[in-house]
Design a protein around this nucleic acid. Structure first.
Lengths: 234, 234
DNA sequence: TGTACATCAGTGAACGCGCGTTCACTGATGTAC
DNA sequence: TGTACATCAGTGAACGCGCGTTCACTGATGTAC
């Protein structure tokens, strides 16, 4: 790795930004968040988002970022929040035209993968970057960004069960399982782009279809189940 | 992020290494690879593996690494090769006692997730780090590290189909789908450790069981399949 | 209407860090004569 | 057996880089009197 092969420095210097008028200092905050997302889009990679790169993209000194975010962690958390809202909106929009609960789940699955492939940088910061505590450590999960999108999925699963399209089970467990499947598809496609994958469409359909079909079938003999069965929480 | 919160510098300075005797220079190469893996284990994180950290762990100057590896990319590739061999061995060993082809697939799935959770650093460099060309760009997939493990999975799927335990289908597509499911489980568990997951055992069983059951059932109406069906390669 | 002053929205330069990589060098060791 | 020499297996110091973060500062602008 030559030093020159570092994360590509994106020359986004639109010149100096004009200083906000008095009382309008908050406008920089929004510009910073927008710039961070632009960097994610342009590079498709989280590494492109550094305090200095964001400051340069906005046309401001690095120190100015600290007027609105206590540290880089806080900035990234705020960006995550924005991205999660986009992500949730994309899934909700896709599911809006569903004809039945299974179609709903299919649409969500396809929209999920599509979002990840179309927004690799964004997908990376919300689902491929280890969140080890940081500033969200004390926030209960239900209040973290992303919780809403997850709740929507659980509800969709529950509707499918209520309609008899899926066998009754722990909707939370089933939703988590579906999430993991589509995440697996998305993240491997992003991480190993040169593997000879089947077409994305075929892959998503195959995986989701198999999963849903397995979830629709009547309970089979408890092959491979843990000793006492059920789905104990950790 | 305070500068002090950088990737934890692991104080592995076992003092100076004694210089190899003439003609035995190659021994350093193995020591370097072993040290890189030790760093992965200790930190559970790829970031801990830098040329300088490895050199320090071996007890040698950073420049000495370049006597055996042209650059960092080459070192990481070599580490990947080692890890893939361990990974494949773990899966083969787990599958060895299988009583039937479905049990075989279950055992592989469990061993896969177990490997990832027990070796997060190693899992990260083989499956969670983007391989965008680098020195493996020209190597055909069949010769890359990891190809063997994948081939073993495809063979196991084929055996299950031959035995009638899975409906006949493209074994490659089915294997890829299973891989993606277990990868999804493993990588989300590693990446979002603070999410309120169900127990790992329950999760793996649920996902794999649903998937295999869906793959065993007779073909359903082509709900959600791409226009012309089939599984076209990209 | 004029002026002193407080405050806001930043700037500029520096801090120390770890990184990958290069390059001139050194000292021990085996070998040819 | 002795000695000059080539080679091997490294070392040490430096290169330039980008990073997150801090801190003393500045200049425009609104406001109170």
């Amino acid at each position: 790795m030559a030093p020159a092969a570092r994360p590509p420095t994106i020359p986004t210097d639109p010149g100096r930004r004009v200083r906000s008028r008095r009382g309008e200092g908050e406008s920089l905050r929004e510009e910073v968040l927008a710039a961070a997302e632009r960097l994610l889009v342009a590079a498709g990679n989280e590494d492109a988002v550094s305090i200095r790169a964001v400051a340069a993209a906005v046309g401001v000194s690095p120190a100015a970022i600290y007027l609105h975010f206590p540290d880089k962690d806080a900035l990234m958390s705020a960006v995550c929040g924005r991205v999660f809202r986009m992500f949730d909106a994309a899934l909700e929009e896709a599911a809006a035209g569903a004809t039945d609960p299974i179609d709903d789940l299919f649409r969500r699955a396809r929209a999920y993968v599509r979002f990840g492939l179309a927004n690799p940088g964004q997908y990376q910061i919300i689902f491929l970057t280890k969140k080890e505590g940081g500033r969200l450590a004390d926030v209960p999960w239900e209040e973290r960004p992303g919780a809403e999108a997850y709740a929507h999925l659980v509800a969709a699963v529950q509707r499918a069960m209520d309609a008899g399209a899926l066998r009754p089970d722990d909707a939370d467990l089933v939703a988590t399982g579906l999430w993991m499947c589509v995440h697996g598809v998305t993240s491997l496609l992003l991480t190993l782009p040169s593997f000879p994958w089947p077409s994305v469409e075929a892959l998503v359909c195959h995986v989701v279809q198999a999963q849903l079909r397995g979830l629709a079938a009547p309970p089979a003999p408890a092959r491979g189940r843990p000793p006492r069965g059920g789905s104990p929480r950790a």
